[in-house]
Design a binder for these strands. Structure first.
Lengths: 211, 211
DNA sequence: GAAAAACTTGACTGAATGGTCAAATTGGAG
DNA sequence: CTCCAATTTGACCATTCAGTCAAGTTTTTC
């Protein structure tokens, strides 16, 4: 029997890690319902009962992967500094998010899929933790506006717009590659995306001289 | 036996319509794998074998719904007029897309889910029809830029940005409602979204006087 | 209004899949 | 080395679900 306490053996540490890596790949590709324990076990190189020795159920694996992903996903958002230069802070944030989309598209897709299907596993989290954090950052943006450092825009919609645009590059990857075959090569593509997004979005919120 | 030719009887027309409506609702909520024929049959108010009398398989229903949706989805994009005022044309397009997100979030989600999982059913379509159409509209944008009517931005990334932002309101609806509970009331919310998106994005591409 | 065609469905089948179990194998503390 | 706990897995079970079938009911046609 796997230990009921929190203590993990060496092998448990290793194998849980292997399973979670495999699960992220599988779940992000096929969604929760579309993935099977066998697929994950195969990718993890172990038998299904062995996998179920480490996690009590498919759902349990899914929730664990999702929670791990969420923390990673939020870090650059938390790091937005109220005392920094607004344009620079947003530029940094957008860059980080695009980098994340390029490096961990699976995480982005896992999350997108969860939200798309009504966020059954993280609805609670969205309404409490995420809402609190976004409210906090919206205040920061409002202060920037009050100080005349950026144009007056709704901070919530600005945040949604940044999320939408940056994650689009991971979530709609197939569509983008179909339209821009050169995107497949990777090199330089994300830089071009970053340039365009930053140009449009930051110009859009720089305070204007004229009416 | 259902007629092998193209001729549809009165009842066939009615029932195929009912089935496709039900299928859109179910598939957009649970995804392809997450949906069952029984669910669709229930929602359509008929027995499973009856439903399978009109469509040979689950996949066939799915593809049909998806194709119907795609046409609708593309219409406002096709309607962008090369000879119109660029800012007005883009404003109109963004408004149309947001309206579509508000009115048919199921369609948007169905499409998002398909792309997210690698577009198995419409990969072909993306690479041919969609690519051609986007290339065409990218040319239009490039002409606008050459004429100095909008700022020089990569037309493809501009298009992606519009898609990302507008569809986000349908696809990530649950997240948005968790953060902005007032969004649930609906009235005025989409107008606020439109205002913000239009302000940021159009300001971002208006040609600037200063360096 | 009767025959033919179109439609409808209860009962069923086979494959897929989440999860169990008992019997084996391996790892590690003393 | 020895023994016990931890790990591993083949075989199995129960359920779900796409799709079939044959027997009925309704609509259409003439």
């Amino acid at each position: 029997m796997i230990s009921t306490g929190n203590k993990r053996t060496r092998i448990q540490g290793i194998n849980r890690g292997i399973i979670l890596d495999a699960a992220l790949e599988v779940f992000s590709t096929y969604g929760f319902r579309g993935s099977t324990i066998d697929q994950i076990a195969d990718k993890a190189g172990m038998s299904k009962p062995n996998l179920l020795y480490y996690f009590p159920s498919k759902e349990d694996i899914y929730v664990t992967v999702l929670e791990n992903t969420l923390e990673h996903w939020l870090t650059p958002f938390r790091d937005i500094d109220p005392d920094g230069d607004p344009i620079e802070e947003l530029r940094k944030y957008i860059r980080e998010k695009l980098k994340f989309s390029a490096m961990s598209p699976e995480s982005s897709r896992l999350f997108a899929n969860e939200i798309l299907h009504g966020a059954p596993a993280i609805h609670e989290f969205l309404q409490s933790n995420l809402k609190r954090l976004v409210d906090e950052k919206a205040d920061v943006v409002n202060q920037w506006i009050a100080q005349g450092k950026i144009a007056p825009v709704d901070p919530y919609h600005l945040i949604f717009m940044i999320w939408a645009t940056t994650q689009h590059y991971a979530d709609f990857d197939v569509q983008i590659r179909a339209i821009l075959p050169e995107a497949a090569e990777g090199n330089g593509f994300f830089d071009a995306a970053a340039d365009s997004v930053l140009t449009i979005m930051l110009n859009g919120i720089v305070p204007r001289q004229d009416g």
